[in-house]
Amino acid sequence: MFAVYAAEPSPQDPLAALRIGERPEPVAPEGWVRVSVRAASLNMHDLWTLRGVGIKPDQFPMTLGCDGAGVLEDGTEVVLHSVIGDPSWSGEETLDPKRTLLTEKHQGSFADTIVVPARNALPKPAALSFAEGACMGTAWLTAYRMLFVKSGLRPGQTMLVQGASGGVSTALIQLGRAAGYRVWVTGRSEEKRALAEELGAHATFESGARLPERVDAVFETVGKATWSHSMKALKPGGIIVISGSTSGPDADAELNRLFFLQLRVVGSTMGTREELADLLRFCEISGVRPKIGAELPLERAEEGFRAMLDGETAGKIVFTR
């Protein structure tokens, strides 16, 4: 079958490990289902896989793609949930110490066909296209959990999103606006700030700019480059919800500010199957749809990877079949 895959780990030059070509057809174990992929979206996690982060060397070659949407063999249209837990785990799957994401242990969605546990294929609302559904399982689910499960924000309060154009950031803007929060966003360029305003941000600011007032919550995916600004932006008692650190993890913790102002820092990783079902329902009811910055045939996947590596994103990058 046709697929986009990582041939080997390449820490310094991730695109050197990218391959586009034929891979063996997957076999579905008992309790798993085959999904004919119609669309799959690109995530930063795919670049980390090419670098060899979060995957053992003996797992290569690895078909890339954490999430997607497609059709079961009986014709049911589905959206993929990419968190695959240990069958013996009975708690929340994001806390399962043996959990993995697609492409860490199991082959991913940038292919004609993928196999996943049956519970990881959720019915796709008819109102969502395959391309829109393909954005839900990683970036949008991460944003949904950060905002509605972890932050504790109430409608009417002010949230700050650090970074204006990535998949999680654009989802936070759209979900926050739809839920009645005042949404502020930082961005490195006028173009990125304009995109945030187009998606519903009430105000945008240059990266690191002094804000008109402090905010109730900051949503972090950048890490080192924005951490100090995030800490300074919070009201006493405010919260930072962090789900990534694309600019590096070794930020100054600013512990004096943390304890003196009684700030809170909360980590957030992906989301549960039930949260994905709720997200799909929320989008169906509210009319919110993901911002797709580029839609490319899978054969042109390298263009999408290069745009993400260069930081030239304007919403989600989706590959179609």
Rank of each mutant, 00 (worst) to 15 (best):
M1N: 13
A3R: 06
L18D: 02
P26C: 07
V27I: 12
E30N: 10
G31M: 10
V35L: 08
S36A: 13
A39K: 04
A40E: 06
M44P: 12
W48Y: 12
T49I: 15
V53A: 08
F60T: 07
F60N: 04
L64V: 06
D67P: 07
D67C: 14
G68A: 08
A69L: 10
D74T: 11
T76G: 12
T76C: 12
V78L: 12
P87C: 10
E92D: 14
E93S: 12
T94H: 02
P97S: 08
T100M: 07
L102V: 09
T103L: 02
T103P: 06
K105I: 10
F110C: 09
D112R: 15
D112H: 12
P117A: 12
R119E: 15
A121N: 09
A126E: 14
A127L: 13
F130L: 09
T138P: 01
A139N: 11
W140T: 02
T142L: 04
A143N: 01
L147M: 08
S151K: 01
G152R: 03
T158L: 00
M159S: 10
G163K: 00
A164I: 03
A164P: 07
A164E: 02
V168G: 02
T170D: 09
A171D: 06
Q174E: 10
G176L: 06
A178R: 02
A179F: 14
V183H: 03
T186V: 04
S189N: 06
S189H: 00
E190V: 09
E191L: 00
E197L: 15
G200V: 06
E206G: 15
V215R: 01
V222Y: 01
K224N: 09
K224R: 13
A225I: 00
T226E: 02
S230L: 05
S230Q: 03
S230N: 10
L234E: 02
G237N: 05
V241Y: 01
V241C: 01
S243L: 04
G244M: 04
S245K: 00
S245C: 10
D250P: 00
A251Y: 11
A251H: 08
E254C: 12
L255V: 15
L261V: 00
L263Q: 09
V265L: 15
V265S: 01
T269C: 03
T272L: 08
A277Q: 13
A277L: 11
L280P: 05
L280K: 07
R281H: 13
C283W: 12
C283E: 14
C283G: 12
V288G: 08
G293N: 07
E295N: 02
L298S: 05
E299A: 15
G304P: 05
I317H: 11
F319N: 06
R321L: 14
